[in-house]
């Protein structure tokens, strides 16, 4: 019986590679990171500064037309501490050597927030409303990774 091929299942490996356009606004945001600048787009109608930027203010349905620098300081709106990672087996976890703190960060001058890593931080002391500051890569290459993390002030 061991010579029989599997007649019950048809296995097909799917190797998917996507190449998503980040979009005109996000492209400019990423270029700004290369100069260690956090850029937001201001809505001409409600004056909100959107970070990450969008081409259209969803509340006003008008195109954002002004770029403003925000940060590097910011405020933690919410956070979590990751303690495990998947171990590769179904439903299995293994402990992280060092817990990873991520937060929803609202840069100073922005009216929105985005998720990023909070580094150089004791997980027990991270809290909502905590002040943080951007930490940049030594050599910026125009990538999201140019903004390494935010650290507590």
């Amino acid at each position: 019986m061991t010579d029989l091929e599997n007649v019950r299942e048809l296995g097909i490996d799917i190797d998917a590679t996507y190449s998503w356009s980040v979009g005109a606004s996000m492209e400019r945001f990423v270029r700004g990171l290369a100069d260690r600048r956090l850029l937001g787009a201001r809505c001409p109608k409600c004056s909100r500064v959107l970070v990450p930027p969008r081409k259209v203010c969803e509340r006003c349905f008008v195109e954002t037309d002004e770029w403003v620098e925000v940060g590097p300081g910011g405020t933690v709106v919410s956070f979590t501490v990751g303690e495990v990672e998947l171990d590769g087996k179904a439903g299995g976890f293994k402990d992280l050597d060092v817990p990873v703190v991520t937060g929803l960060i609202k840069p100073d001058g922005a009216d929105t927030a985005f998720v990023h890593v909070i580094g150089e931080a004791d997980p027990r002391e991270v809290a909502c409303s905590m002040r943080v500051e951007a930490v940049w890569a030594d050599e910026a290459g125009g990538a999201l990774s140019d903004l390494r993390y935010f650290k507590p002030l």
Binding site: W20, S21, G23, M26, E27, K55, V56, F61
Partner: peptide, 26 residues
Amino acid sequence: KRRDVNIAELVYEAVRPVFEDTGLSP
């Protein structure tokens, strides 16, 4: 290939003329 815009921006390019053409707004 529209590598310069993302999906939301691409669709907006069809939405804008339909609002302009009809004089409607959201």
